[in-house]
Simulated scan of single mutants.
Amino acid sequence: MAPADEPPEPAGHGVRGHVLLAADRFKGSLSAAAVTRHLAVGLRRVRPGLPVVEMPVPASGDGLAEAAVAAGWRRVPVEVRGPTGRPVTASLAVERDTAVVDLGEACGPRLLPDGRPRPLTASSFGAGQLLGHAVRGGARRIVLGLGASAAPDGGAGLVQGLGGRLLDPLGRELPPGGAALRNLHALDLRGLPDLARTELIVAGTAAGPLLGRSGVPAAGTDAGSGGRDGVRLLDAGLRRWADLAEAAARRTARDLPGAGAGGGAGFAALALLGAAVRPGPVFLLDLLGFAERARGARLVITGEGALDTRTLRGRTPAGVARSAARAGTPVVAVTGRRGLTGEQLRRSRIQAVYALADIEKDVERSMRRAGPLLEQLTVAIADEWLPLASL
C-alpha cells in the first residue's frame, strides 16, 4: 500500500454502508467488469456480509453494455452477424428510453472464431444490426460504446447492418471488409432508419482520425495478415469510403476526434448518423448513476492498469475520485503499477494506492495472474479501511 503522504484516518470507519467498486480495465489482462468482479470476490471472502456494489466504468468503451447491466439496466440479447459473418448472440442494455449498444458485443476481437485477425474482410455489420434493434425498440437516446473492434472497416459494415447499401460500379452489393471498399462506387442510404428524434452518443476513448499514421489502416492491420500490402489495401478502401460518405453527408468527419474509434465506426457514426462524442469517464459515471451509488458508501475502490500522470488527465480513477469527494466518500485505488507521487494522489483525491507489483514483481506473471492478485490486495484494503470492529 502506498499512502498519499500520510492519509487521514479513513472516513467511513464506524459508518454502516456499502463498498462501491468503480474500476476501469487492466489493459491486456482484465476487463473493467472482471476487475470489479475479482475485487468483490476478495472482499466477500475477507469481510463476509459486507454489502458490495459492483459498477465497472469502461472508459475505453469496451464492455459498456456489460457495465450497464451490472449497474441494473435490463439485458436484451439479439442474434447478429459476427465479424466473420457467423451468427453470434450480442447484448444491449436498456433503461427506460436509453439503450447502450456495445460494438464489442457484435464485432469485438473475442468473436473471431479462431482468434486470427482478418483485418481486410472482417465487418462491423452486426453492430449495425444491434443499433437498429435499439432504434426499433423505441430508444430516444442511444449510447454507442466504441472499444476494440475486429473489423477495421470504417463503420461501413455498421451502415450496411442498419439498412444502407454499398454498391460497386455494376450496382452490386460490396462484399464485407475494408479492402472491398476500394471498389465502392455509390451509397444508397434510403434504408437507414430515421434518427431525427434519436440522440446518438459515441462513448469511449477519443481516438485519433480515421486515416493517417495514427489512423485505422495502420492500427487495424498491425496484428493481422497482409503486412504493408494489407495496410495499403485498407487505406485505399477507407479513403474511398470516406470520400463518398462525406459527399453523401455533406460534412467532413474523417479527422474529427473519435473518428478512428472502434475500427473507424466512429467515423460512420459522426459522418452519417449525426452522433456526438462524449469521451472519458465523466459521461459514463453520470450514465451509470455513480453519484447516487457513492452516497452512503463507506468506501469507493477504483483503479486501472497503470496509475500515472495520464490518470490525472481525466481517466477513470481521477473522475471517480472527484465525484466521490463531492459525496464525502473516501477513495482508494488498485493498479498494476503506480507512477504518482503522494502530492499528486492527494490532489486527485485518492487516499491510497494498492499495486499488484507490491506482491508480484514479475510483470508478465502479474498480468497473467491479475485476477487472483487483485483478490489478495483486498486483504490489505480491508485491514486498513474496513476493520471488523466497524462492521
Rank of each mutant, 00 (worst) to 15 (best):
Ala318Thr: 01
Arg278Thr: 07
Val277Cys: 13
Asp286Ile: 00
Asp243Pro: 00
Leu299Ile: 07
Glu292Trp: 13
Ala269Arg: 05
Gly280Ser: 11
Asp255Cys: 09
Thr309Met: 02
Phe267Val: 09
Thr309Gly: 14
Arg315His: 14
Glu292Asn: 09
Ala249Lys: 05
Arg254Trp: 15
Gly280Val: 12
Thr252Asp: 09
Phe267His: 11
Phe283Gln: 01
Leu284Tyr: 04
Leu299Phe: 07
Thr302Gln: 02
Gly263Arg: 03
Gly274Tyr: 08
Thr316Ile: 02
Arg251Cys: 15
Pro279His: 09
Gly264Phe: 09
Leu272Cys: 14
Ala271Val: 11
Ala276Asn: 10
Thr311Pro: 05
Arg278Pro: 09
Asp286Gln: 12
Pro281Asp: 03
Arg250Met: 14
Gly266Val: 05
Ile301Ser: 00
Ala245Asn: 02
Ala269Val: 14
Gly314Asp: 11
Gly262Arg: 02
Gly305Phe: 14
Asp255Gln: 12
Ala259Gln: 09
Leu312Glu: 11
Glu246His: 12
Leu285Gln: 02
Asp286Met: 00
Leu287Phe: 11
Thr316Ser: 12
Ala291Ile: 02
Gly319Arg: 05
Arg298Pro: 12
Phe283Gly: 01
Arg278His: 15
Pro279Met: 09
Arg251Gly: 14
Thr302Ser: 01
Leu284Thr: 09
Gly296Val: 03
Arg278Lys: 14
Thr252Arg: 15
Glu246Arg: 11
Arg313Met: 14
Asp255Arg: 14
Gly274Ser: 09
Glu292Cys: 05
Gly296Cys: 09
Asp255Ile: 04
Gly262His: 04
Phe267Asp: 08
Gly296Thr: 06
Gly258Glu: 13
Val300Cys: 01
Gly280Asn: 10
Ala318Cys: 00
Arg250Ser: 15
Ala248Val: 03
Pro257Ile: 05
Pro257Asn: 07
Gly280Pro: 14
Arg250Asn: 15
Phe290Ile: 01
Gly262Phe: 07
Glu292Tyr: 10
Asp286Val: 00
Ala297Ser: 13
Val320Asp: 06
Pro281Leu: 00
Glu246Tyr: 12
Pro257His: 07
Pro317Trp: 00
Arg313Ile: 01
Gly303Asn: 05
Pro257Thr: 06
Leu307Ile: 08
Gly305Cys: 11
Ile301Thr: 01
Arg293Ile: 03
Phe290Met: 03
Ala248Ile: 03
Glu304His: 01
Leu272Trp: 02
Asp286Lys: 04
Glu246Asn: 13
Gly264Lys: 08
Gly258Thr: 06
Leu256Arg: 15
Ala306Met: 07
Ala268Val: 06
Thr252Pro: 01
Leu256Asp: 08
Pro257Cys: 08
Asp308Leu: 05
Gly305Gln: 12
Leu272Ala: 13
Arg310Trp: 08
Thr252Leu: 13
